[in-house]
Design a protein around this nucleic acid. Structure first.
Length: 870
RNA sequence: GGGCGGAUAGCUCAGUCGGAAGAGCAGGAGCUUUACAAGCUCCGGGUCGCAGGUUCGAGCCCUGUUCCGCCCACCA
């Protein structure tokens, strides 16, 4: 006895579905696999968002795509895990908390390191969960039981292990170098954290340095007159006839009582540029620093850490570097040493975080020696152990690693992984250790103190693919899921993160951290502009989800994610996918009108076999698209199959059976509908998980959750064969009749006949023909006053007595003839071309000959019809 | 200065092996059709940035070039 299923609501309620399933799935444990369970491993580690962050469109895209993959693989029988987590984001987080304290009138220095860190942790406990809660609104299937934080206990162990090991191997060292200093953040930063602002309009000033012996002067140009206070040489080209004889002499510093040497340096100096002489400030300029090293010049640091002139600057001491610049210009002019100024377009190095203009400073910092690490990381991609999608990003990766400099990893911050090094106050030796050091490793003094600095945030991020799996412990997770399957991220962190994970993984684990790297584009607004707060064009994903529902939102992003392009977000796209969602729902309601329990197998008829074969093709296409990271192709295919094949054709076909008297045909249609919607729910689940589950749960007889149902396989479906030719003929006939009807502006209510000698197979489908085109196919000769149609090469006539306008019919036939003639001309030309006939592939040649024959016949038929009209 | 993308219908984009240019949206015409007007049917729309070359044949391969975008780089 059949139980009537409750009626489905008229419209799909995305929010209700989300509420029904999201949390239940998470609690059910389906996202938390056992590493001992069977199934090929498939793993993804999330690009950890900053713990300070809130969800933006980039996160939404990035995590939607990861979710598509992990849900697909989970359904496909893989032992699939997606590990989530957050990053402590050193500078960013410290700043937020500092700012909050300042608002309360508290300075972090007064508070002290320990108390301040307590505040940061407290803040992290309270506010750090925001981004995680927001991620869940995307319906992501992360394994939250494995959630990690870059400063949790396990990851701290991983950081120490990595640091100490690399120190022992000589890959981490401490040295006094010229580094990028952020005078506002008051910390060293790495080369990557320096952003150059382009096309800054500046001025290039020329000043004279008088020769000490009074025999003349040398003019130098600079954009930074304040650095003059730290000048320890003037460099000229050693072959420059203007200055060659001066090398070895000295000039008098124009402002300070110092003699500074003139040196010859062919590397720094371009004799054709400016005056051909360059002032050298080795402690505050990277080029000059090299000159200083080559010529053994003193390195005079003239700035305090907040970029004010220090005591070396004499009367300028205490001035900010930009005030000093103004004052020095004034003073030099007063001294009569000003030799002109010109506008100069230049680039300004700024700190990524604070925006402050970076000041190169000589400073003692910790570094990672990069060359030995970069070489195997390069080789791993060259040898395709890791492949980028799209491939072109490999060039970016190569370019950076091939020309890499050592990485400054120490930061003068409090929030972060403290460097595991202890300095001895007595013998000055440094002891690096995994454990807390209380005794100097060199002199056994107990007068030791831990290094004050913390590590660059990216040092811990670099370990993410294995630290999250338990490294340095030998865990079951690590054994099962390392290396991970794919990394999905944006191009902006290929250097910061992808490359660093690559060499860390290779170095610490002995193999690459991921097999594939999918690089997605940037989400822009509908005009292609970058989203920015100042422009006011930022789309908040949470608001979009609230408005459109999670399924349509995710589908929109997925449909825009091709290979290598930026994504233009527009409401029109979301509306298109909302309509698709509605279409799926309405068509499922149709199924539910006719199928209230799981139908028993029934031998499928031609139309049933047709849609099953088409479903098989769609399954293959969707799988191929996901497998090659062509996400947009997958969504296009789903749309195409579900809307244009399933709904437009099959559902309409099925009505003849469902409303007819033939019980066998009815049973077959029901079984086919059930099979196809079981497939649709599963196909859709990675993309539109909540809609898919609503279908699945309301599909009579389906078991469990669609989350763990098997992803459809091509082999589940019959291949198309020649017995389906009749279906193709049927479709062509229907379209031909509809076209004539549209051209004659005949209402769908006017029944038509299609008369022919060659359509003998079709009258059997009279019910379908009536449903879809309100036409009856009959055998017979050409009637008077009829429109001629050619259906797959077969001539037919639609009697239009009383309606046929001869002029219009001539016009219509004329148009068709012109098309056919054009085709025939083209094909005759092609097949008359010896080059083509001689070189084209045989199957192509045969198919072209077939086309020509068909078109010639069509042309003849149509021409005869036109002649017959008189 | 070096490198990487992009340029195809009004808009956004596909186009995989070199074999007659595709989709969605937008546009036009017609439909109260028993899942869906958030719908259905039919139609129009292109000098594939430009100029050469290779080829029987080029949106696709090669050379040059113009715009747009991005990344890297130390010219004072």
């Amino acid at each position: 006895m059949s139980t009537a299923a409750p009626e489905l609501p008229q419209y799909y309620d995305a929010h209700a579905a989300f509420a029904r399933y999201a949390e239940a799935w998470e609690k059910s444990g389906v996202y938390s696999p056992n590493p001992e369970a069977p199934g090929e491993p498939y793993s993804i580690v999330i690009p950890p968002p900053n713990v300070t962050g809130s969800l933006h469109m980039g996160h939404a895209l990035n995590n939607t795509l990861q979710d598509v993959l992990i849900r697909y693989k989970r359904m496909d029988g893989f032992n699939a895990v997606w590990i989530p987590g957050t990053d402590h984001a050193g500078i960013a987080t410290q700043w937020i908390v500092e700012k909050q304290l300042r608002a309360k009138g508290i300075d972090r220095r007064e508070l002290g390191r320990e108390k301040f860190l307590e505040c940061v942790w407290e803040w992290k406990e309270h506010s750090g969960g925001t981004i995680v809660r927001q991620l869940k609104r995307l319906g992501v299937s992360c394994d939250w039981s494995r959630e990690r934080f870059t400063m949790d206990e396990g990851l701290t162990r991983a950081v120490r292990e990595s640091f100490v090991k690399m120190y022992e191997e000589g890959l981490i060292y401490r040295a006094t170098r010229l580094i990028n200093w952020d005078p506002v953040g008051l910390t060293a930063i790495s080369d990557l954290e320096v952003e150059t602002e382009e096309n800054v309009q500046g001025e290039l000033w020329s000043f004279a340095y008088p020769l000490s012996d009074g025999s003349g002067e040398i003019v130098v140009a600079t954009t930074r007159p304040e650095t003059m206070l730290g000048d320890t040489a003037v460099a000229v080209h050693p072959q420059d006839p203007r200055y060659r004889h001066l090398i070895g002499k000295t000039v008098r510093h124009p402002l300070l009582d110092r003699a500074i040497p003139i040196v010859g340096d062919a590397i720094l100096v371009d004799p054709a540029f400016g005056s051909g002489a360059v002032k050298v400030t080795p402690a505050h300029d990277f080029n000059d620093h090299e000159v200083g090293k080559r010529h053994n010049l003193p390195m005079l640091t003239i700035f305090t850490l907040d970029a004010k002139v220090n005591e070396i600057g004499g009367k300028y001491a205490g001035l900010d570097r930009f005030e000093a610049r103004k004052q020095i210009k004034i003073d030099l002019e007063a001294l009569g040493l000003f030799r002109g100024a010109q506008l100069n377009v230049m680039t300004l190095p700024k700190s990524q975080r604070s925006g402050a203009i970076v000041e190169p400073m000589v400073s003692t910092q910790w570094f990672v020696k990069m060359k030995p690490l970069a070489a195997p990381a390069l080789a791993a991609v060259e040898n395709e152990f890791t492949t980028f999608h799209p491939r072109q990003w490999e060039n970016t990766y190569y370019a950076w690693l091939r020309d890499i400099k050592d990485w400054c990893i120490s930061r003068q911050l409090w929030w972060g992984h403290r460097i595991p090094a202890w300095h001895c106050a007595d013998c000055k030796a440094t002891t690096v250790s995994r454990d807390v050091v209380t005794v100097c490793g060199t002199c056994a003094s107990m007068n030791v103190a831990q290094d004050e600095d913390v590590l660059d945030t990216w040092f811990s991020s670099a370990l993410w693919p294995f630290s999250t799996l338990g490294w340095p412990e030998k865990t079951a997770d690590l054994a099962k899921w390392y290396p991970t399957s794919v990394l999905i991220t944006g191009f902006d962190i290929i250097f910061f993160w992808v490359a660093r994970m690559m060499y860390s993984g290779i170095h610490q684990m002995g193999s690459v951290p991921f097999k594939d790297v999918y690089i997605h584009g940037l989400v822009r607004d509908e005009h292609g502009d970058k989203m920015s707060k100042t422009k006011g064009n930022v789309v908040d994903p949470l608001i979009a989800i609230e408005k459109h529902g999670t399924d349509a939102f995710r589908m929109t992003l997925t449909s825009l994610a091709g290979l290598g392009r930026d994504l233009l977000w527009s409401d029109k796209n979301v509306e298109a996918w909302t309509r698709f969602q509605n279409k799926v729902w309405q068509s499922f309601r149709f199924l539910r009108m006719h199928v209230d329990e799981k139908p028993a197998f029934a031998e499928p008829g031609p139309m049933d076999r047709w849609i099953l074969a088409r479903a098989g093709v769609a399954v293959g296409n969707v799988r191929a698209a996901i497998d090659s990271y062509r996400f947009n192709d997958a969504t296009t295919e789903l749309h195409r199959f579900i809307w244009y094949e399933l709904c437009d054709w099959y559902l309409e076909f099925s009505k003849a059976a469902l409303y007819g008297e033939d019980e066998a045909a009815k049973a077959a249609a029901k079984h086919t509908l059930w099979t196809v919607y079981s497939t649709v729910a599963r196909l859709l689940h990675p993309f539109m998980p909540f809609l898919a589950e609503e279908l699945w749960q309301n599909l009579p007889g389906s078991a469990g959750s669609v989350v763990t149902a098997a992803y459809p396989r091509v082999s589940d479906f019959p291949a198309a064969d020649s017995t389906l030719d009749e279906v193709a003929l049927l479709q062509e006939a229907i379209v031909a009749v509809r076209r004539v009807r549209a051209e004659k502006e005949l209402s769908g209510k006017v029944p038509l006949e299609l008369v022919s000698h060659g359509l003998g197979a079709l009258p059997r489908y009279h019910a379908v023909l009536e449903d879809l085109a309100n036409v009856t196919v009959v055998a017979g000769d050409k009637p008077e006053a009829a429109a001629t149609v050619v259906i797959l090469g077969i001539e037919g006539w639609i009697p239009l007595a009383g309606v046929l306008d001869l002029d219009k019919e001539r016009e219509r036939l004329g148009g068709q003839i012109a098309k056919a003639q054009k085709s025939v001309d083209f094909l005759r030309g092609l097949l008359g071309n010896e080059g083509f006939v001689g070189k084209a592939k045989p199957e192509l040649l045969a198919s072209r000959r077939g086309e020509l024959a068909a078109d010639e016949a069509k042309l003849a038929t149509l021409t005869a019809a036109l002649v017959a009209l008189g």
